[in-house]
Nucleic acid binder design. Structure first.
Lengths: 315, 315
DNA sequence: TATAATAGTGACAACTATTGTCACAAATAC
DNA sequence: GTATTTGTGACAATAGTTGTCACTATTATA
């Protein structure tokens, strides 16, 4: 094997293994330890952050793991990647902020001049708009980490009734039109709840020793399972015009209930928790003639009440 | 210079220049032409798609331009890039669809096992939700291309009054909550208009010879300039509760008019085209008690009319 | 404290790869 | 026909790589 090939493979192996000895590599590549030592020195000079310790149980280590892919991206691919990262800049809060921007600038830096020109030209011609929010989301990393490692997190949460301390076990986090949400098991309510991350006043790993539950079947790809197992359900049925369908498509909660007809119109049908009535009443009022609520009666009542209130206000 | 270094630099140069001769490179690198020929053959074997023509004005060319960056991404950066690209999968239509997914799979393929594991773990724990829409956007590439190259595009556009043919000069395209929009100069209305891309029934480069205007000062980063210079303006003033502010933050059109107070409440204030009254009336009705419209009177009148209509419908 | 495991360096000879030169073939634009 | 260009083959000179050996130094552990 040629030296350059060996170096490439070394990079890969070194990154995969994280910890290794010179002898190991020597036998793996069928070369002398001296050669491997020289190779490692060269890798080091090329920027791979190697660190070594002598003695038994010593060996080499890679410090901040790097992947060094000599990947051949086509120009089109580079552009696509660039704009994907670029789209993230609209999020003022991310669980990996600094990384995405540094990756972006690296990418930009290494691109050849004409690709760069092309990107500059495109920058002001295409955008993925995400509403810029004033709300603050300082605990995204903690929540994400808690979701990945299935830990119990202690949060202070601000709801209509004031601030309360809760133990939660996050399922994940997601952003929707510029706001971050965290579906989680709530040890207080003993059920799944959706938390708005900007209402979380503090968050930290729980130290009281509450045992995490086995919620591995719950994840973001499994929306059905994230519906709280509440008692008080009722049946929703709403007729929608073509415009109404499009407006409902934009709402996260509606996706499982929305049905479309060939002509573009459609309807909403499905279970709904009774506590959502105030929200839905206001929402369907906002759809105006594009929605016709048929049931439940409680929802219709609430809508009538609200309409009367607004008539009074603007009348 | 060592051979491997030279090869790396060769890749870069070759990608930047697109067209070159062996002699040029030989003098640039201070080696013989024979060496360069050997190098180019090696690059070719490594996958760089080189093509050559003999004779005067002949030379080498790179076929599909590739950038081959030996970029050292840290693990964190790789993860960030991955999720940025991953977020794009929610868009069923993109002006560069295939590229982003192929880039993503390449990235995934070249990642070392443990980074891959980490990504797999995160995949179901974090998401950027963008509403999945039924609407179709088949002409994004044409519009984007038109915007970049400042060409005149002939479209058939479906508005309330039916389908009409128009000549437009796109400023750019942007996606907002799953729908694509195209601000463009409309040669029919002789002004800037915002087109919804799912209402475009056909699009193609114009062949009638209409001269493009010099609109280089217009781009997506310059929202103020994209407001149509209409005659019929009126002044909007709306008082907002804290909730109302948050709901307005989510609307693309409101960003320039939204003002916030320290306590979280705020107000909307600014010019608005009169033709937007129907839309705004419905929108503010949807905000309910979180918005109090003060002016213009025409807007208040329309709201009252709509409220009465809804009272009748549900009453 | 001795021992084994580990990294690290220097020198040198054997081996391998790279390079330049030269000769020549083939295509092509003008 | 001539100049320009890619492309190939052979060969010697040069440069780089590798293995071996003889060292040094550090450190965990028995």
């Amino acid at each position: 094997m040629s030296k350059s090939k060996r170096l490439m493979e070394l990079m890969m192996i070194v990154n995969r293994k994280k910890k290794f000895t010179v002898k190991e590599l020597a036998t793996e590549f069928n070369v002398s330890t001296r050669t491997i030592l020289r190779d490692l020195q060269e890798l080091s000079e090329l920027g791979v952050p190697l660190y070594s310790e002598v003695g038994p149980h010593g060996g080499y280590q890679v410090l901040n793991e790097r992947i060094l892919p000599p990947i051949a991206f086509t120009e089109e691919e580079a552009v696509a990647i660039f704009f994907a990262c670029h789209a993230l800049r609209h999020y003022a809060y991310l669980p990996f902020e600094t990384e995405s921007s540094s990756a972006l600038s690296k990418f930009y830096f290494y691109m050849s001049g004409d690709v760069r020109d092309r990107i500059d030209e495109m920058k002001n011609r295409i955008d993925f708009v995400i509403p810029s929010r004033q709300a603050k989301f300082p605990y995204l990393s903690i929540l994400l980490d808690g979701a990945i490692r299935q830990q119990v997190i202690r949060i202070e949460y601000e709801s209509r009734d004031g601030v309360s301390a809760r133990l939660i076990q996050p399922v994940g986090i997601f952003a929707s039109s510029g706001l971050w949400y965290c579906p989680a098991y709530c040890f207080l309510r003993e059920d799944i709840r959706l938390f708005r991350c900007d209402r979380i006043r503090s968050a930290a790993e729980d130290t009281s020793g509450t045992q995490p539950l086995d919620l591995r079947h719950l994840h973001l790809g499994n929306r059905e399972a994230l519906i709280p197992a509440e008692q008080e359900f009722t049946n929703l049925y709403v007729e929608l015009s073509e415009e109404g369908v499009q407006k409902c498509e934009g709402e996260y909660w509606s996706s499982t209930k929305l049905h479309r007809r060939e002509d573009g119109t459609g309807w909403l049908e499905g279970h709904m928790p009774k506590r959502d009535i105030p929200f839905l009443a206001q929402f369907f009022i906002g759809l105006g003639v594009d929605a016709t609520v048929k049931s439940p009666p409680e929802l219709l009542d609430d809508m009538k009440r609200r309409l009367a209130e607004m008539m009074a206000r603007y009348g």
